[in-house]
Nucleic acid binder design. Structure first.
Length: 299
DNA sequence: ACGGAAACCTGCTGGC
DNA sequence: TGCCAGCAGGTTTCCG
């Protein structure tokens, strides 16, 4: 599922349709969706009931609502999570795990249509938790305690590209691993990592401590660029798994140059694209544009 | 500090 | 038609 652009689309939906509303009632189905809320599901619903959403924030792939109770409701979409805002009487989705009854927005002309925010997640890797806000070590302001270990993403003002490049060059690891390390730079997942590496003509197994700083900067610039382009188009989507808060699918998948293109010609040089196993999943690259490092590893 | 694998889930696809 | 292996955008945790 969602990488940064998709999560940002969802955040904007929350900002427009949930912020300003009170959470009148919260209903969880099953305990798994709140498994990361250690005090338990009952505690979660009790503490949420009656609070008002003051703002919708995001860092990388983590999303949270700042609440009037001075806490944050952290949402992670995992691989297949969706947030939908729908009328109360809309049929419940098969994999709906949490329902938030929204109070009327005092500023809207809604004429009494009551809506719900619904958390729908087929594969159930996503979830909810309520946590304190703590000082952000990367920028002025606060972040939820459970997000404190996540580095700023390339779209944030707090993103320090030079600092990330320095950290990468100190580390002996593969560039793709580094791109996926959310404590180094957040928001990048398997799709956008492959897209950024293709654009930069760099193989994902290149060692970060052997690549010139200039190349690392280029990879990060491309990651930023491809995510901005995806965001402009409403995010990437596959099948019907990803839908934003209004129910509209993104369509960036038409623009992908690397991800999922094994056996198809490279859009730059025509060489057939390859697929390689990587961290229990796949990497896609061009054998001509993205030469493997001479000595295996980088790790 | 790092690599690798496993774990957490459901559903879809392709091969036999 | 059915069965089974393989695969899917993420994160955490454990082991070496």
């Amino acid at each position: 599922m969602p990488e940064l652009p998709e999560v940002e689309v969802v955040r904007r939906g929350l900002q427009g349709h949930v912020v300003g509303h009170r959470l009148d009632e919260v209903t969880l189905s099953g305990i798994r969706v709140a498994r990361r809320h250690l005090p338990g599901p009952q505690d979660l619903t009790d503490r949420l009931r009656g609070t008002t959403a003051l703002s919708a924030r995001r860092r990388g792939k983590y999303l949270w609502l700042v609440l009037s109770s001075d806490e944050a409701l952290v949402l992670h979409l995992g691989m297949s999570g969706q947030l939908l805002v729908e009328p109360n009487d809309a049929p419940l989705e098969k994999h709906c795990h949490a329902v938030f009854d929204l109070g009327a927005d005092p500023l809207s002309q809604d004429h009494g249509v009551r809506r719900q925010l619904r958390f729908v997640d087929q594969r159930t890797f996503g979830g909810l938790q309520l946590t304190d806000l703590v000082p952000d070590r990367f920028a002025p302001g606060e972040v939820p305690a459970v997000v404190a270990h996540i580095a700023p993403d390339p779209l944030e003002a707090a993103f320090d590209q030079a600092g990330v490049v320095r950290a990468m060059r100190r580390r002996h690891t593969q560039i793709k691993r580094a791109l996926l390390d959310q404590s180094l730079v957040s928001g990048i997942g398997n799709i956008y990592a492959d897209e950024a590496l293709w654009r930069a003509r760099v193989h994902g197994e290149r060692a970060t401590d052997k690549l010139p700083s200039r190349t690392l900067r280029e990879v990060l610039d491309h990651a930023h660029e491809v995510m901005v382009e995806a965001l402009d188009q409403g995010g990437t989507s596959f099948d019907a798994l990803y839908v934003n808060v209004n129910g509209a699918s993104g369509y960036f998948e038409r623009s992908l140059n690397a991800y999922g293109r094994q056996g198809l010609p490279c859009r730059r040089c025509g060489t057939l694209m390859r697929r390689e196993a990587f961290m229990n999943r796949s990497s896609f690259s061009c054998p001509t544009c993205q030469r493997r490092p001479r000595r295996a590893s980088g790790g």
